[in-house]
């Protein structure tokens, strides 16, 4: 089957078949990452701009490595070095980038909707690497790939997502992706971090008790408390947060014995996740990071419209 999307703006626009194709394609790319010479000529001659208007280490690195392993020319620009600080509008920045004829712009932006804004104004493909509190599609896809690797399926899984749902683009993309693939999503967080109407995004149940939310779950995903974004009126203290919404060796036992523990990173050890759990046998956190490269290779490959994978 073929991939019909020019842009990757979010999971919301994706059908089950799209997600399936991306995951299968990523599976095929995984092997490249294990070779001695980790490079294939698939995207030779393609130019990919990683435009990160918001700080990121993992995602930016992952997209850059993904592009390079496919032989694309990848160029990075970041918020602090871009002309945005000189007062240029996003449209003008994008038009200038476009004038240099890239094939794909990968964008991370602090404002929800920025990738959609660009997609309406430039001719090349746009890949959303996280926009505000809206979506983070590549993260959701690597989450699903990791679940599939460990559980053999996604359909029917009970997935608990715990933390600051309000500000989480990861949660939104995961909800869409998991629901499309037939998993059940449980959300849990403090009352200040559960946004209104979140249950309308998909097959979602909202819990205020962490114990209930993770009971018999197949997957427990802990979201990062964004210390840099919280004002003190959202939470009394990180100490209390850890007590009611942190994953620790005691409450982790409520999940299924073979449950996997996930985290999109970067972790705040001792806050949303204790080190014993983060480093425990159930954690698949680094598998997520590893799969991130393969998933992003798949996304870049699929949106670039290259016809075949023979060059692999």
């Amino acid at each position: 089957m073929s991939f019909k999307h020019k842009h990757i703006l979010g999971i919301e626009q994706m059908a089950k078949e799209d997600i399936q194709l991306i995951l299968d394609t990523a599976d095929a790319f995984k092997e490249i990452n294990k070779r001695d010479i980790k490079k294939v000529p698939t995207l030779r001659g393609k130019t990919i701009i990683n435009a990160f208007f918001e700080a990121s280490t993992r995602t930016r690195l992952s997209f850059e490595i993904a592009g390079k392993r496919l032989s694309a020319d990848t160029v990075n620009i970041s918020g602090s070095t871009s002309s945005v600080v000189k007062g240029e509008t996003l449209e003008d920045t994008a038009k200038n980038i476009e004038a240099m004829a890239p094939d794909i712009i990968v964008i991370r932006h602090g404002h929800s909707g920025a990738p959609h804004y660009l997609a309406e104004r430039v001719g090349c493909s746009i890949v959303n690497a996280g926009d505000g509190a809206h979506e983070h599609p590549s993260q959701a896809l690597l989450d699903l790939l990791t679940m599939r690797d460990h559980k053999g399926r996604i359909e029917g899984l009970e997935v608990a997502i715990v933390g600051d749902i309000t500000h989480s683009r990861v949660a939104r993309s995961d909800i869409y992706a998991l629901t499309r693939m037939g998993a059940k999503v449980r959300l849990c967080g403090p009352g200040t971090m559960l946004p209104p109407g979140i249950e309308r995004l998909g097959n979602v149940k909202v819990f205020t008790s962490m114990r209930e939310a993770i009971k018999d779950a197949d997957v427990v995903m802990m979201l990062r408390i964004q210390l840099e974004r919280q004002s003190n009126i959202m939470l009394p203290s990180l100490r209390e947060y850890a007590r009611f919404y942190g994953l620790n060796p005691t409450n982790v036992k409520l999940a299924k014995p073979d449950a996997i523990i996930m985290h999109p990173g970067p972790m705040n050890r001792g806050v949303e996740i204790s080190s014993l759990v983060a480093d425990g046998v159930q954690n698949v956190i680094l598998d997520q990071v590893e799969n991130g490269v393969a998933v992003r290779m798949a996304l870049l490959y699929l949106v670039s419209g290259v016809e075949s994978m023979q060059t692999l």
């Binding site: 919301e12 929800s112 979506e135 309000t166 939104r172 209104p196 109407g197 309308r200 995004l201």
Partner: peptide, 13 residues
């Protein structure tokens, strides 16, 4: 407006 649409769009309500 705060509500389901804001939640979906990831915009502050």
């Amino acid at each position: 407006n705060d509500g389901p649409v804001a939640t979906e769009l990831g915009l502050k309500g």
